[in-house]
Nucleic acid binder design. Structure first.
Lengths: 239, 239
DNA sequence: CGCGCTGTTGAAATATTTCAATAACTGTGG
DNA sequence: CCACAGTTATTGAAATATTTCAACAGCGCG
């Protein structure tokens, strides 16, 4: 386990301006005055993670607030059985952990780099006192968490009343909406997003392919008819 | 539609001390100084709802922050199909809406009185400025929402890998933990908590009864062997 | 080259929903 | 106080979606 502090060298490779610019457009940091952006940028240092590397694990004390600078991070929850559910795919400008830095609570989530990832890290105590100086952070955080709760509850209802194919269609449309086409995810990853097994995902993907809605091969899926997916009353999820 | 303001008469029937005492023990209001409790109590007025009455509906602008003073309130999310999922059962000292009063966001939740209910209501603008004066409210709120997100995600995993009977057992144990025995819920209500149909709930309940874990008849269920339910590695949910 | 990961499909096993019919109980109004 | 309406509980049987287990093909990479 190499501590984040080890990579202090990286710290100076990213300019303060650049960090401030990232915070300016970051989710949760809307409506902050310029001096505040510089203040938080001053507290942040960068850290690189390679593809597949674990950023944090379940029930681990939270030392840093993390913001994605580049790359893609998967935040998931794991069941004891090994089944995992991905509930956030964070790209540039998105925070990974909006609860623990404030509450210090241990949570059952883990974060993994899906590509080469650059994160901005802010020590929790510094982050906390920053937030108290700029309480709109709290409001923004509550807003984001509210959406997360709604999205999760919506997904529970979907599990009951929608078939795998419809859920997958919704997942694909959401990914298309956020990341564009082609969608570069394996079926195991799509399964973790849809809440099913890889086999069922593959079968459903096959159906969508046969219907001409998507094209897919090895690790990437092209949405051919986004309009059709939208028409099927598919409300966008929130990852 | 009779506005809440109509019932101002109720306002004076509840003493300031009583309101402050409620806030003192309310979830989300931990660690507030006495003067703050009196301040928020001064902003609050009581309103009574009869059994079955709707407190708020989906996509309705949020005018008040609500705190349960007595009785029981069910907060649910409804799918277009009519299927509903209950995700919070709020009793004395529990808030009904922790997001909209801060963000003003329209949400897809609805709240219904399950018994005769007394609520304390605080206008959102007053509540908001109170919170900015006492930002520990924000931290507490974030903590609660974090738990809600975790609980919802856990439930999604349960939907995939646990059978109805196990999910129901978990629901029953959680209810037992919070409200004690007997559990006074109809099978339709248990179904909305378990995320299944009433028929499946009844069948599962029958199985649990045959196994001697519960006794049940018309609208109430007695947990006979709480220890067994616990032993089955049932983590407590969070309603 | 062969190991490992991803994709693909089949067939059996299974859990759950759906539809339907009936029974039991509650409360209300005549 | 009884009848009736409305809700709640119960169970059966068929229909269905999904998982599970298994086998195999293709691809990439050390």
């Amino acid at each position: 386990m190499n501590s984040v502090a080890e990579t202090m060298a990286t710290k100076d490779t990213i300019g303060l301006q650049e960090k401030a610019a990232l915070f300016e457009n970051a989710r949760g940091f809307e409506d902050l005055p310029t001096h505040a952006l510089h203040e938080i940028a001053g507290l942040a240092f960068a850290k690189k993670f390679t593809k597949g590397e674990i950023i944090f694990s379940p029930n681990e004390p939270c030392l840093y607030f993390y913001l994605v600078m580049s790359g893609l991070v998967k935040v998931s929850i794991y069941a004891s059985s090994g089944f995992s559910l991905t509930y956030l795919l964070a790209e540039e400008g998105e925070p990974l952990n909006l609860v623990s830095p404030f509450t210090g609570a241990l949570r059952s989530t883990s974060a993994e780099a899906m590509k080469e990832v650059l994160l901005l890290c802010v020590k929790t105590d510094g982050f906390m006192s920053f937030a108290f100086k700029h309480p709109s952070i709290f409001i923004n955080t509550i807003s984001i968490l509210g959406k997360a709760v709604d999205s999760a509850n919506l997904r529970i209802i979907d599990m009951v009343e929608k078939r795998v194919e419809q859920r997958l269609a919704r997942v694909l449309y959401t990914l298309y909406d956020k990341f564009g086409s082609p969608i570069k995810f394996t079926s195991a990853e799509l399964a973790a997003l849809t809440g099913t097994t890889t086999e069922s995902t593959l079968r459903a993907l096959g159906n969508l392919r046969r219907k001409g809605l998507v094209r897919s091969n090895r690790g990437q899926t092209h949405i051919v008819e986004p309009s059709v997916l939208t028409k099927q009353k598919i409300e966008t999820l929130w990852f």
